[in-house]
Each structure stands twice: as structure tokens, then as C-alpha cells.
Design a protein around this nucleic acid. Sequence first.
DNA 1: TGTCACCTGGAAACCGGTGTCATACAAGTG
DNA 2: CACTTGTATGACACCGGTTTCCAGGTGACA
Lengths: 354, 354
Amino acid sequence: MSSRAEDTPSPRWGTGKPTINDVARLSGVSKKTVSRVINRSPLLNEDTRKRVLEVISELGYVPNPQARALALRTNFLIGLIHDNPNAQMVLNVQQGILEALQGTDFEMIVRPVDRGSAAMLDDVRHFLQRQRLYGVILLPPISENDALARLCDEAGCRYVRMGSAELDDADHMVASNDREAVRAATAYLIEQGHRSIGLIAGPHGFRSATERRQGFEDALAEARIKLPRSLIAEGNYTFASGLAAAEKLLDLSPRPTAIFASNDEMAAAVVHAARQRGVDVPGQLSVIGFDDTPISAHIWPPLTTVRWPIVSMARSAALKLLSGIGESDSEVAEPSMFLSTLVRRASVAPAPNP
Amino acid sequence: MSSRAEDTPSPRWGTGKPTINDVARLSGVSKKTVSRVINRSPLLNEDTRKRVLEVISELGYVPNPQARALALRTNFLIGLIHDNPNAQMVLNVQQGILEALQGTDFEMIVRPVDRGSAAMLDDVRHFLQRQRLYGVILLPPISENDALARLCDEAGCRYVRMGSAELDDADHMVASNDREAVRAATAYLIEQGHRSIGLIAGPHGFRSATERRQGFEDALAEARIKLPRSLIAEGNYTFASGLAAAEKLLDLSPRPTAIFASNDEMAAAVVHAARQRGVDVPGQLSVIGFDDTPISAHIWPPLTTVRWPIVSMARSAALKLLSGIGESDSEVAEPSMFLSTLVRRASVAPAPNP
DNA sequence: TGTCACCTGGAAACCGGTGTCATACAAGTG
DNA sequence: CACTTGTATGACACCGGTTTCCAGGTGACA
């Protein structure tokens, strides 16, 4: 029909949908009044509200979120920025966030990033500037990156970091007490008579790794057990790295009688490596992991591990965002510290007699 | 300043950001011309374009996506609707979709739903109506729900279903050839001398379950092996259900010498159950799974399994959405059928001599 | 009854882009 | 030279909500 078309994506919505004007006309009030009904303004005649609501449901009117977003200068989107340490964890976090968003107008958009990439910060900056999200949630391990938090500040974007460390800043952080949880787990091994306990630490520079390692050392120190350097191996939270670390520990002589791995992937690798060389778990080797991911229950023997309430933490992080960080009107503060607990399964047995 | 404030969420963006008007003023052209530059309109003087681009980069101008969305009646959001069958799979799909969205203005929002819930369809309907997404991608197993596809049609929302069946409708579907892949996997077991092979089927009513079962039966029929009913157990793709099914099969006498499980979770359960009752895998029992999720490589022994190119499929599904389904101008059709392949690991051995 | 504070609701502006159409100007054409 | 054709640009309405500002109506109170 038109003489020439400029190149634009073809629209699709907005043809048959009723607008706020239709509602206003049919209920005999102004747009503004309808808007007041939608936004639950308290200064509003009860009869008017009812009438408008009737028309709304009759017409099946749904306010256009784009228009709302434009007018309100908020886009009702929460971002989840993560660099996938573990699929189950990411999905649990998504679940927690979505639980918090339930019943609100907010939605979640997901942004995986590449921790290793040099362009990571620029990517995120670009992302934040373009999308102008209401706020973002940062997942460990990338949440430990302070530059990222500064970036959010600069971009004027609210944020909450999930972590496994002490709270530096309760307004922007939700954390679990990894150190204490690992101390308790290690103490449990010691209780079972183990004296030669190997540690597969997390990657250098990660707060969670440090916390877990400290918890481990706390327990040994309490029991006055010395920790030779050789009993410490490092992995980067992947199965492959755990395998290498486990092999190193299992080749020691004398072999440790127990190993604490800083996450389940690496603990699974320990079990894997042990089986490969005919070492019986838990008969000759006890193993404890961390995370309580499904794999810990599915392998044989099922892993004793530390469960951290990741879904609750994520939910709390999202609520914290929505309740307006640092704004004085947040009535009930969301909890910021969560307790992890030891889940006892079959991968731990009393230490064999020498 | 104002005498009274109505209750609205506090805005946060839009205070300091340069707008298209700023760019227009500073480069001495009209808004429309700036808009043309942004949208890469071809009818545009090269010098003007350069000048505007300079001003844009100088100002650090970023177009407001909400305003664009409103004007274009499209919100540049792709929805992923899934009911979590498996964390790794969901995450792989997210990765594939995001790869496809890379460099476009689109973002992905995630919507997990509860397959069991009666309110599921209403939830989704409500979600689609409210968000007015550009399009959605449906993941199995929920993608097999025809009512859901109809819902998308009614809501005027583009969609692509990912599946494991034949293509009913290549415009709206991306699929893998499960049947053939399972046939090949089963044939491999037969090649290894197995004659008594158990099947842990997927849940009744699921297309993927049917396809895989048929592939299994195809292979047996080819080799003229009879399949007694007792060798078929059913699970619902969870570890727990796999455990129950595995126990049933392992308690048979004579015991099957191999088991094909319709996904890795259930295959892992078979290994788990076997170990529990001292049956050696693969010495006394060979196992094959399906999906090639990480657990298949991490348990001992590592599982032989069928890998389907889920990331590529998801990427293709997203590209299919973006390229405008059913619109005549889609130049190169996205591939719709993907081939799954057998990954041979240590869980299969030749059948023991009776 | 007059004054005033307090609700309520309408008109118009606004959020920040894009579409339509008109216009100015250059080049091609018979 | 008048007339079409085509290119580059601008004015202005519009997307569908929200907000500002103001006026009319109401009840309380002197």
C-alpha cells in the first residue's frame, strides 16, 4: 500500500488488544482513573473501582508492559548474572528468584558470562547500559569480583551479591556460613577417627575457596592435628580438576583415610578416582563434598556433603532487590545470612585401623 | 515539592542519560535521522551518518529499549518455557538460545512451569498475555503438549517446540532423531552379544519416551530377539523412578545382561542399584543411557550414552524464531532435524558367557 | 451561608523512540 | 524546459501508558 517501506521488524502485537482508552470509554471514566485502579491508588471511590474492574475483566484488558515501563522509567526486569559453576546451582537460583518474583510484575533475564574472558567486564557494562535493568543478582563465583559490583554502581543499577563469605555489606549481599559448615564437616571426620585428611581446595583467589579452606583448617587446629602441605591439593571446582587433585592425593603414601573436597563435582571425582584404582569408599577412604547437588545423591556411595540453602538465599536476594536496597522504607529486612548443614550419607565411615 | 505524592515505584533511570533528542540537537539533524542511523536505514547520506555516529559515541548514547519496544510493538524478549527435566539440559538450552541472541537486541526470559499442576495452562496464558513476548521456545517434555502450542497460537505468540520426535511441522519444531539413535545404541548392545536386554522406558504419554522405546524395539526386531514384557519397566525420567525400575529388572531371574535406560538419570540409577546389590558393571551388566549429561561421565563406570546436540538445537530454535516463522522472507531455513550419536564409554562390555 | 480543605476526575503534556507524509533538491528524460 | 524519478531529510502524529495541573463537587466548620 505505502509507496515504500522503511526496513523495520514487522510488528505483531497491538492489533486486537484493548487499550486503557477502551476501558476508560466503556466504564465512563478517564484514563487516569483506570490507571489509578491498575496501580491500586488508595484515593479512589470504591464504586468506581469496581465498575472499572468489571470492564477490565470483561474486555480481558492487560496493560501493555512496554508502555508502563517507558512511563515509569523502570523495566520490571531482574538480571541474573552468573558464570556457570554448576548447572543445578544455577537452576536452583533461578527457581528461588522466580519464587520471589511470583505475583509481581517483574521477570528474570539470564546472562551467563565468561569469567576467563578479558572482555567480561565490558560485556557486562554494555549489557547493563543497554537493558537498564531494575537490578541484578550476582552469583558466585563471579559475585566475588569487586570490579563487577563497582560496575553496577557506576551504571546506576541495583545489585545483590550471593556469596559464601562474611557479610561485608548486608545491603548488597546474601551469604552462607561456609567456614563454620566446613569446620563442622571436618570435625565429623575427625570424630570418626580420621587423622590423615586430605583437602581439595577451590581455586585460588575465590572467597568461597578461602572460607572452606579456613573451616577445614579450623577443625584440624581445634583437634591439634598437623596439616602437611602435601595433603592439600587445588582444583577449580570442575570434575576434571578434581580428578587430577584426587589422583595426587591417592598416590601419596601413606594414603589419607579421608578427603574433603570443596564441592560435589570434585568429591565425585575423588570417588571416581578411588574406584578406578580399587580403593574402597568408604571402607578405605571417606569422602565429603559441598553443595548437595543431585550428583552427590546419585553416585555410589551417596556422598556426605554440606547443603546450603541456595533456593532460599536466591529468593531472599531477589526480595532484597525488590524491597529497594538502601532505601529507608524497607520495613522488614530480608535475612542476609544463611546456615549450611551437614547431610550425612554413606561416603563416610570410621577410619580403618592401621 | 508537590503537595502530595501518589504511590508509585520510584524511578531510577532516565535522570542523566542522553536521549535521542540530545543526539539530534548536537549533530544538527532531526530525531528521525538519528533513528535512521540507529536502525541502519540505507537511504541515508554517508556524511550525515558518520557525524551522527560520532556524536553518539561521544555522548555515550544508548537507545532506550523500552521506548523502542513501545514504538515497535515488540519487546525484544524471547521466552523459554520449560518444566525442568534436568538441570544440565535446561542450562545447555539457555546457552544455545543466548548464543543465537548474541549481537541482537533480544534477551531471554525464563519461565519454569509445573507440568503436574492443573493451573499450568492458565499460568502460561496469563504469562503470554502480560508479557507479549516476541516468541517462546518450548522445551521437552512440556513441548509435547499440543494444548500449549494452541495457546501460543491463540495468544498470537510465535513459538518453536524442541522435540525428540519426527517433524510434524518444521516451521514450529526442532527435533532430534531419537528413534534411530536408540536403535543404533541397542544394536551395539546386541553386537556385544547381549540377548537379554532390559528397557527402562520413559513415562507414558511422552513422545520422547515412545520414540526411544520404538528405537529399542526396532533393534530387537531386526535381530529377531523376542522382548518379554517382564524386561520392560517404566520410569518418569527421575533418578528415584529409575531406581525402582532398575530394582525390578535386577531382581528378575535370569537377570538381563544389559539395560537401556531412556535417560542418564535413570541409567545412573541402574548403576547405583547394581552396585548396591553387588552386580558388577559392566562385567555382569552393561548399561546405556541417553542425554550425555555430566553425570554420565562422572559416575563410575562412565556411562555409554546417546548424545544429542542440544546446544545446537536450542540455537537453531532461537534463530528460527528470529527469522520469522512462516514468513516468506526467511532466506535460509534453519535446520530442523538433528542427529544424535552414540558415545561409547566404559559401561558396556561383551555379554558374559552363560 | 461562606470559606476552606479534601477528594475526584478530565485535559494535556510527557516518557523516548518510530511511522507517515511532505518537502527540497539533484539527476534523468523526451 | 517541463516532468518524472529518486534521494535525503524534517515536521508531526503516534505507541499506551503515567503524571501534572487544574477545576468542580463535597462535607466540615465557623
